[in-house]
């Protein structure tokens, strides 16, 4: 796969990992604060998608 896409995918995976952790922490402290504007399910799906691509490219 194109090296540039691999690097971007990896970076996106990192960003979505951080987003998931931060959003989950925010929801725990202040329920509804994230869910009011963002569906965390979609963040999780995108995180999984980029994670799988990163894994495939490492094999």
């Amino acid at each position: 796969m194109n090296r540039k896409i691999i690097l971007i995918t990896r970076e996106l995976f990192y960003v979505f990992t951080a987003a998931l952790v931060i959003f989950a922490a925010m929801e725990t402290v202040w329920p509804g604060v994230v869910l009011a504007y963002i569906n965390i399910n979609w963040v999780l799906i995108l995180w999984l998608f980029f994670g799988i691509i990163v894994l495939i490219n490492q094999i």
Partner: peptide
């Protein structure tokens, strides 16, 4: 990548600020 990295992380920070601001 440096540029892209900055854009991606800045996007996340702005999203968090937006959510906190609305709350």
């Amino acid at each position: 990548m440096k540029k892209n990295r900055i854009i991606l992380w800045l996007g996340l920070i702005l999203t968090i600020f937006f959510i906190l601001g609305m709350a």
